[in-house]
C-alpha cells in the first residue's frame, strides 16, 4: 500500500505546488482569481449564473445594488452579518475574498438582468402593494417605497427587492424583527410593528412585482 500511495501523494503535491487554473478556478483564497470566475464557478451553484437563483433558499442577486452587495459581502467576511443563512453559507465563502474581489462580484451580479416571477395570490399582492407604497399608518409602518424606490429597484445601500423570492423576504423580515443577526440597519425599528400577514403580503407582492 505504502509503496504506491506515497509516490501518488508526492505526485499530487508537486502538481499542487505549481498548478492553478485562474480562468476556471474555484479557489476562494487566491486573490488572483478574477471575480467573474468566482461568480461563475462558485456563486452560480446557488445564486444562478445570471443571479436569478432557482431555489428560494438563496436570494436573487440579479440587478442588485452594487453598494448593497459590497456591504453584505464585507459583513459576511467580518461576521457582522450573522443570520443563519449568512453564517451557514456565506461566512466561509467570503472569508478570504479581497476588497477588489468583493467589488468585482458585486458588479458582476449588479449588471445581470432580473427575471420576473409568476404572480401570486391577487388579494395578497394587492395588500402587499398597499403596504409597499403607503405603509400601514395605523400600525406605524412606513412605506417601503420610501427607501427601496417606487420600482423596488433599491438605491445604493438600500437593496433592490423586486422579483426577490418571497420566502427569502419573509425570513429576512423575521430576522430584522426578532434577532440581532443583521445589525446596523434601520430595519429593526421599521419591521417592529409588522404582523405575519403584513410580511407575507409584502413578500408576495415583491416576488411578482407586477407593473
Amino acid at each position: 500500500m505504502k509503496k504506491t500511495l506515497l509516490p501518488l501523494l508526492a505526485g499530487l503535491a508537486v502538481i499542487a505546488s505549481g498548478c492553478s487554473n485562474l480562468e476556471r478556478s474555484r479557489d476562494l483564497a487566491n486573490p488572483n482569481v478574477p471575480a467573474a470566475v468566482t461568480a461563475m464557478q462558485v456563486c452560480s451553484n446557488c445564486h444562478g449564473i445570471d443571479g436569478n437563483s432557482v431555489s428560494p433558499n438563496f436570494p436573487r442577486l440579479a440587478g442588485q445594488q452594487t453598494a448593497y452587495l459590497v456591504a453584505q459581502l464585507q459583513h459576511f467576511r467580518s461576521h457582522e452579518r450573522a443570520d443563519p443563512p449568512g453564517f451557514v453559507y456565506m461566512w466561509g465563502i467570503s472569508h478570504h475574498l479581497t476588497d477588489d474581489q468583493i467589488k468585482g462580484l458585486a458588479e458582476y451580479f449588479a449588471k445581470q438582468v432580473p427575471k420576473p416571477n409568476a404572480p401570486g395570490d391577487a388579494q395578497q399582492m394587492a395588500a402587499g402593494k398597499e403596504i409597499y407604497e403607503k405603509g400601514v399608518p395605523e400600525q406605524n409602518v412606513i412605506a417601503c417605497a420610501a427607501c427601496h424606490g417606487p420600482k423596488a429597484q433599491g438605491i445604493e445601500a438600500f437593496p433592490r427587492l423586486a422579483y426577490q423570492h418571497a420566502d427569502y423576504i419573509v425570513k429576512q423580515l423575521d430576522i430584522f424583527q426578532h434577532t440581532q443577526g443583521r445589525p446596523g440597519t434601520p430595519m429593526e425599528a421599521i419591521t417592529h410593528p409588522l404582523t405575519g400577514e403584513n410580511k407575507q403580503a409584502i413578500a408576495a407582492y415583491l416576488q411578482a412585482f407586477p407593473d
Binding site: L12, I15, C19, S20, D27
Partner: peptide, 9 residues
C-alpha cells in the same frame, strides 16, 4: 479535499 484547482480527493 482540494489539492489543486482541478484535483481533489
Amino acid at each position: 479535499g482540494k489539492v489543486t484547482d482541478n484535483i481533489g480527493a
